[in-house]
C-alpha cells in the first residue's frame, strides 16, 4: 500500500475527508471537484497548491456562494454534466461523499476516469460493523452517525461497501493507486493493510484510481 504523509495543513472549516483529499493533490494540478459545495476544497487547492480548480455543484445556493468567491463552479450534477468535458481534461477528478447519491455510479466513475488521469472517490462504507449490527439486531434499515436519514428520505440511493467498490473497480479495469479508511472524525484507521478489516471498521473510504 502507498505511504501517506501526515496532514501538513489543516484548513479551517474544511470537512475532514476534504483535508485528506487535499493532501493527495500535487502542486499545479488541474482538478475537477464534483459536488464541490461552497468550494472550500477548491479555494484551498488554488491557494495552497496553485491548482487550476473547477467545480460542479448540484445545490444552487452553494454553487452561487462558490461563484461569488470567484471560483469556477457550475451548477450541474455528476450524472449529466461529466460527459461534456473532453478526454483527459483534468489530472484529478474528485467525487467526495457523493458516489452513493448519483443515479449511475458505474457510469460516473467511467466518466471521471475518461476526463481525468486520476479519480479520487470518498464514500461512506455500508459494510461498517455498526451498520451490519443494526440491521442484524433490529431488522430495520440502519440508523448511525453516517447513515442518519430514514430510507424514504435518503438521497443515498446506491450505498456500497468498500469490498463492493473494489470489486467494481476491478471489474471495470481500474487500478487502485491508494486507499484509506477513516472513521467519522476523519482519523485514519489502523487497519489499512487489510481491506476486510477496513470494510468492517472504516466508516468512510477514500480511494484513488487510475485507468488500467
Amino acid at each position: 500500500m502507498p505511504d501517506h504523509s501526515p496532514i501538513q495543513y489543516v484548513a479551517k472549516n474544511m470537512r475532514l475527508d476534504l483535508r485528506l483529499i487535499a493532501e493527495m493533490i500535487p502542486e499545479g494540478a488541474r482538478v475537477l471537484d464534483i459536488g464541490c459545495g461552497d468550494g472550500a476544497l477548491m479555494a484551498h487547492l488554488a491557494a495552497e497548491k496553485q491548482a487550476d480548480a473547477r467545480g460542479i455543484e448540484i445545490d444552487m445556493q452553494a454553487a452561487t456562494e462558490a461563484v461569488s468567491q470567484g471560483l469556477a463552479v457550475i451548477h450541474g450534477d455528476a450524472d449529466n454534466d461529466l460527459k461534456h468535458y473532453p478526454d483527459g481534461a483534468f489530472d484529478y477528478v474528485i467525487l467526495s461523499r457523493t458516489l452513493q447519491a448519483v443515479e449511475k455510479p458505474q457510469e460516473v466513475l467511467a466518466q471521471m476516469l475518461r476526463i481525468g488521469r486520476h479519480a479520487i472517490v470518498s464514500f461512506p462504507n455500508f459494510g461498517h460493523w455498526q451498520v451490519r449490527w443494526r440491521l442484524l439486531t433490529t431488522g430495520r434499515m440502519p440508523n448511525t452517525d453516517t447513515w442518519n436519514t430514514p430510507w424514504y428520505r435518503t438521497p443515498n440511493i446506491h450505498p456500497c461497501t468498500i469490498l463492493d467498490f473494489f470489486d467494481l473497480a476491478a471489474k471495470d479495469g481500474y487500478v487502485v493507486e491508494r486507499w484509506l479508511a477513516v472513521d467519522e472524525r476523519g482519523l485514519k484507521a489502523p487497519w489499512r493493510r487489510s481491506v476486510r478489516l477496513a470494510n468492517l471498521f472504516g466508516e468512510q473510504a477514500l480511494v484513488q484510481l487510475r485507468r488500467g
Binding site: M60, A66, A72, V73, I74, H75, H84, P86, A89
Partner: peptide, 21 residues
Amino acid sequence: SRALVRALNAAAARVSFVEIT
C-alpha cells in the same frame, strides 16, 4: 445557458454558471 456552459466545458474553458431563482 446550460447548453452554452456545456459547450464551454467541451472546450475546456474556465466557466462559472448559476441559475438565479
